[in-house]
């Protein structure tokens, strides 16, 4: 726990920030989505899959979230839809604006993991 958040959150913060910066730079350079920017969003999705498995393991091993479990898993499933959706859309829309959309994905995931951290530990 660092500053009240667990390692899951800090890993997501790192991945989300790197993805956002990479995609933003590529947007400013006028680039359509490429392996680098799309890969960074796929990495976020892969992280969320691991996070889901980790959550289920912790659910079985401990008492689960302090807050409402329905709300926790609702957040998690909603979060998992977002990188998948922006990635699929970025395959069909080949413009710099698509790269900007990918840039927004990371920060949204970080905010949602923050909410999930609050739900798990505090209320």
């Amino acid at each position: 726990m660092i500053a009240g958040y667990d390692l899951w959150f800090w890993i997501s913060a790192l991945l989300g920030a790197v993805s956002a910066v990479v995609c933003l730079v590529q947007f400013l350079r006028g680039r359509a989505p490429d392996d680098l920017t799309q890969g960074s969003v796929l990495l976020l999705e892969a992280f969320l899959v691991v996070y889901l498995v980790g959550s289920i393991v912790m659910q079985l091993a401990t008492d689960g979230p302090s807050g409402d479990a329905w709300e926790y898993y609702g957040y998690l499933l909603t979060a998992m839809i977002i990188p998948a959706g922006t990635f699929i859309w970025s395959l069909t829309e080949r413009s710099r604006w698509s790269t900007l959309m990918l840039a927004v994905t990371g920060p949204i995931i970080v905010v949602m993991i923050q909410r999930m951290n609050m739900l798990w530990y505090y209320y």
Binding site: L77, E93, S95, W97
Partner: peptide, 19 residues
Amino acid sequence: GPGMIIVAVYGLFSLSAGA
């Protein structure tokens, strides 16, 4: 074009507000 960003943000709000 740039309009896709507005559609994407509206899509995000549909998803999160709906959930």
